[in-house]
């Protein structure tokens, strides 16, 4: 088992013919993921990487039965691409595009509210169920199938922590990058819910950082129930330079620009085991398995 994606997931790529689209589609195919087509307006009917191209997501879905999409288009077009996939009823949409204008996400969020789609990203490394399905731009060499669920706000730190886990024999059920942007699709809470329901996931690792409300929301959710599986978290940015140029402490403290220390405090209160840094995540997971 896994969350969001598995070997039955049928993936299309929006923006497959671009440089990055081609590179990452090729990597995903080599990894053995089930990619069934690409979308590139004006190139419908042709083939790319030996997969059929379509003008629209709707056509691609009806022709291939795709239920997931990787959005890898330039930032000015990303919102429309996400909305097109959402409106075509794609179950899981993963957007890896960086620097998507924040106001564009207003429309994406509107579209999401009227749909069943799960959006991952934007500015996400994507989602990986090792050995079954890769939708995104993350490396896969060090990923191993297993029982650790990872939800992360940082692509680079996920690679790092995942490598430590695999080396210690702790494979992963699914790794989800929720994305580094303020306004994004699924967050830690949705991931925690799914990992809880996934019989194969035995422990969850949250990789957080300063800013936003993901860690606070996760802590609040974990306090509402007996989660039943150990949760380990690392939150980076304890010594980050304060946003002194911005200097909007008033607005931002109200708005939840939590410091790393505050986030760690909330998570610890909710029973989460805190790893001080990436090198200590494996020992923190081990510690949760020892009888109290």
């Amino acid at each position: 088992m896994s969350i969001f994606v598995n070997s039955d997931t049928r993936v299309i790529v929006q923006g497959m013919t671009g440089r990055a689209g081609t590179f990452y589609t090729d990597q995903a195919l080599r990894y053995g993921s089930n990619y069934v087509g690409g979308v590139r307006p004006g190139k419908g009917g042709r083939r790319h990487l030996d997969l059929p191209l379509f003008d629209t997501v709707k056509e691609a879905v009806s022709e291939t039965g795709a239920n997931a999409s990787l959005v890898i288009v330039p930032a000015p077009f990303a919102a429309n691409a996400m909305i097109e996939a959402i409106e075509a009823g794609v179950e899981t949409v993963v957007c890896v595009t960086e620097r998507v204008p924040q106001h564009d996400m207003t429309r994406v969020k509107d579209a999401l509210r009227q749909s069943q789609t799960m959006l991952i990203g934007p500015n996400s490394q994507g989602i990986l169920t090792p050995g079954q399905c890769k939708i995104g731009v993350m490396p896969t060499v060090e990923a191993k199938p297993g029982t650790i669920g990872i939800a992360s706000r940082s692509a680079s730190l996920t690679s790092e922590i995942l490598a430590h886990c695999s080396k210690a024999g702790l494979g992963q059920s699914t790794t989800v990058g929720v994305g580094g942007d303020n306004i994004h699709g699924v967050g830690f809470v949705e991931c925690l819910k799914r990992f809880r329901d996934d019989p194969e996931t035995e422990a969850v690792v949250l990789i957080g950082e300063i800013g936003g409300r993901e860690e606070e929301d996760a802590a609040a959710y974990l306090k509402t129930l007996s989660y039943g599986k150990p949760v380990v978290a690392v939150v980076v940015g304890r010594h980050a330079p304060q946003g002194r140029r911005m200097g909007h402490a008033g607005t931002l403290s109200t708005f939840g620009l939590g410091t790393a220390a505050e986030k760690i405090e909330h998570l610890r209160d909710a029973g989460v085991v805190i790893a001080k840094n990436a090198d200590e995540v494996v020992s923190a997971i081990a510690a949760t398995k020892e009888p109290a």
Binding site: R153, S154, A155, L157, G180, G237, H239, P241, N277
Partner: peptide, 27 residues
């Protein structure tokens, strides 16, 4: 690139890895 006040020139790939490195240097 963001300038800071210390003496270790840090090169990383990824903001999260950078924040993590930064924390470890201070620690």
């Amino acid at each position: 690139l963001v300038k800071m006040d210390g003496s270790i020139g840090v090169v990383v790939n990824g903001a999260g890895l950078g924040l993590a490195t930064n924390d470890m240097i201070f620690d």
